[in-house]
Design a protein around this nucleic acid. Structure first.
Lengths: 224, 224
DNA sequence: TTTAATTACTGACTCGTAGTCATTTACTAC
DNA sequence: GTAGTAAATGACTACGAGTCAGTAATTAAA
């Protein structure tokens, strides 16, 4: 009989329902301001029940964040699988990240959590592991793209593809975080458009990793 | 009579003593783990007294962080005032930031707080203002350096010096944060030295903002 | 010197919230 | 119908930020 299986499904379903409620509140209020009581109420369950499904508030937060990582992965994956050239793919990577920032701002903000070690106290080892696996998928996409581009002679092969991936990803993330938190300030006080700064940053880094041959083509395209 | 002045001095002194205790505990335990009771005990005062000098725990945290910003400023200021060329100065800026990261790791970590908007709830307007002024001093140093370099023809003048400052600063900060929180992981799992990645990132960005003339000299120097 | 007034300090208290656990309710099997 | 199991509950504990009525110390006035 399939009772065990049905129960298993229902349990998974309940877990997702709880996460829906958590997502709603984390999006609205952020990690610290949203309370477990509020999430419980939104999920139409008691607080105790939440802890049958997630070990801590932080674990729950990361579970929501992983949804965001999956969203981003599903956007990126087809870019890598497409028939574009490596150069085109990398350009799309940059645009896509910016689009994701705009269309999924709340998820993007959550990514920031990973880099704030002071709040990881309550994160379970399992969740840490799961996040690590999920983020590894993203890195592999990008590193693979760069590695193939180097083999094809599009990108400079004297650079380490992993290092380049980290450089591109980190600088884009840092600038988008700044857009998010300080964008208006820079605009008002210095008349600076941080998104334009991001474009310049991407352009500078992008061009500096192209091989001379491809850079010449690229410049030709930009002029024509 | 100087009683009012003496009292004023004593009050300032007490405020610094409290900050010494706070700094010790924030360095050891971070913002969330350090408690006001612990800080009070370390300062040999009651918790209530702390609130006569600082409006909230977050305010206190930012006051400590500002000490770090002053330390960094005092390291940077002489670089800008020196007789080096703009190119040399900019190179020193990069090295200096990395040195600061190593010698004042706890301060560096605190800087990260500014970019985590979810924890700014309890920060008073005065403190926000004070931080803004202090960080503005740093930015002005860097922006001024870039602007002069552009006027002298060392850096490309088709770029906006403010944008370049933001780009260089953000990417360096992002990579150092990663060194701090994930450095060991990348080393173990991928055999990647994130500090080397930072050097590459700096080199790529650095060279791409030089004018063609200076880049040629620079390349000559690097070879010679 | 005594007393009043001002300032500095105290620590028990309130309040909010994460996480727990003994108990209750709902469901399944025999 | 009853025993056994799984799911859910919510009152409770622990803990920490921030408060405030009261106390002590210092200065000014009488």
């Amino acid at each position: 009989m399939g009772i065990t299986e049905r129960k298993e499904r229902e349990k998974e379903h309940r877990k997702e329902e709880i996460l829906d409620a958590a997502q709603k509140l984390f999006f609205e209020k952020g990690l610290t301001t949203a309370t477990m009581d509020e999430i419980a109420e939104a999920a139409e369950l008691s607080k105790g029940t939440l802890y049958l499904y997630y070990k801590s508030k932080e674990d729950m937060y990361l579970a929501v964040m992983m949804r965001g990582m999956e969203v981003l992965y599903k956007i990126y994956e087809p870019i890598v699988s497409s028939n574009d050239t490596s150069v085109q793919k990398l350009a799309k990577f940059g645009d896509t990240y910016k689009n994701f920032f705009h269309s999924h701002r709340s998820f993007f903000r959550m990514f920031h959590f990973l880099q704030a070690p002071q709040f990881h106290k309550q994160v379970s080892e399992e969740m840490r592991q799961a996040c690590s696996v999920e983020s590894r998928k993203m890195w592999d996409l990008m590193i693979g793209l760069l590695r193939r581009g180097m083999e094809e002679g599009a990108f400079r092969s004297d650079l380490n593809p992993v290092e380049v991936a980290i450089i591109l990803w980190s600088s884009a993330t840092a600038l988008l975080l700044r857009v998010d938190s300080e964008g208006d300030t820079w605009k008002e006080r210095m008349n600076i458009d941080l998104e334009h700064a991001l474009e310049i940053s991407n352009k500078l880094l992008f061009e500096s990793i192209l091989t001379d041959r491809v850079r010449a083509e690229f410049a030709g395209l930009n002029r024509g």
